[in-house]
Design a protein around this nucleic acid. Structure first.
Lengths: 197, 197
DNA sequence: GCTTGCCCCTAACATCCGTTAGTATATTAT
DNA sequence: ATAATATACTAACGGATGTTAGGGGCAAGC
């Protein structure tokens, strides 16, 4: 009988969630079937239900674990004594690093959250909206003390966050520059676009 | 019997394709069913097949009509006598305008092309890759004559294109700034991030 | 060595999916 | 008016989907 292999101190559920992230990223939530997932885990579809409640639960876990990491980082950055530009740079570097090292989860959380169902859906949307507001508030602070040029802050936030999701293409590309180079290039262009001169 | 209403000189197929764009955008290609589409068109599901060959055909039409518009614009811009920055600005303004005025189609083409099947899939990927190469080439020209700061051109392209797809959030937002303001803000940030000072 | 609890299996379910067949009705051309 | 064509309908198909039921084996604790 094929048992789910666990390494370190990951639970079997953790293994399933992680394989689900890869699968949802590759095919999309709707197109990825529980039988696909079972195969990638090395088990029959029905067996998954010894560890999880439903397919949607997998999406919950992915979306909210990602969202929580970003909200936690926002708490941290807001509490620091630093210029607006420094704060923004820190947030962006965190986004970039998350997108590079936890590609699958972050991507799924970004693109597949629509398939959440209430109350999770509205909850997630709320967290997202709040996060963006806080991000925009930092930008506005930077505009008030002339670090940042006069722009519409929500628009700037939307540009930053979506630009970073472009790292998806970097992952797929065959002739990648290094992760460090990628990060420096992105920071240079994005922060460079904000600075007041 | 409920007939599909056509206006101007749109064919019934055009009506279906356009409704499909809205539906695919809202729910995603896989999650949108032909019965959903039929309802939004005002007809029974089976009746759609008097006008289209398959669900996938709808996706083909959407993806390639969008891709063709962008490739055509690229031809036009490349042929112009203008600085690299001017060319990039023109391309970006076109992207922004397309995303504002043909939101649904562009969005679907951007996010749902994975569900194309070969040979359409590889064809589409090819067109996309070529487009990005041409975009990167313009940036590299701009770097050679010092209009643009030293960056990795493919990374810059990926930032630009993904940033613009953020207009999705603008469409959903309740308190929108005007389309003109949005465009000027985006150009200011994105082009500002490239310029060599 | 026996029991307990965890884990996996096979089988099956109800439902939804894209699509086809066959038929009826509405529109257009003669 | 009649014939031809376009377009709609109902019914049904085969297959995929998420999930449940029920039974059996494996490992740990006594």
């Amino acid at each position: 009988m094929a048992r789910i292999k666990t390494e370190n101190n990951l639970s079997r559920k953790d293994v399933i969630v992680s394989k689900a992230a890869a699968l949802f990223r590759e095919k999309g939530f709707k197109a990825a079937s529980m039988r696909d997932l079972a195969e990638s885990v090395g088990v029959e579809a029905a067996s998954l239900y010894n560890h999880i409640k439903s397919k949607t639960e997998l999406l919950h876990e992915l979306c909210f674990s990602v969202a929580n990491r970003f909200l936690h980082k926002m708490d941290e950055v807001e509490a620091e004594h630093a210029t607006a530009i420094e704060k923004i740079e820190k947030l962006l570097r965190f986004h970039i690093s998350e997108m590079i090292h936890h590609y699958e989860e972050v991507y799924v959380s970004d693109r597949e959250w629509k398939h959440l169902s209430d109350p999770y859906l509205s909850n997630f949307q709320n967290q997202r909206r709040i996060y963006r507001k806080r991000f925009a508030a930092i930008i506005e602070t930077g505009m008030r003390n002339s670090e940042i040029k006069k722009i519409d802050a929500p628009t700037a936030v939307l540009i930053m966050l979506h630009a970073i999701s472009g790292i998806e293409s970097w992952h797929r590309s065959t002739q990648k520059i290094s992760a460090e180079e990628l990060e420096e290039n992105m920071i240079s262009i994005l922060v460079g676009g904000l600075i007041h001169r």
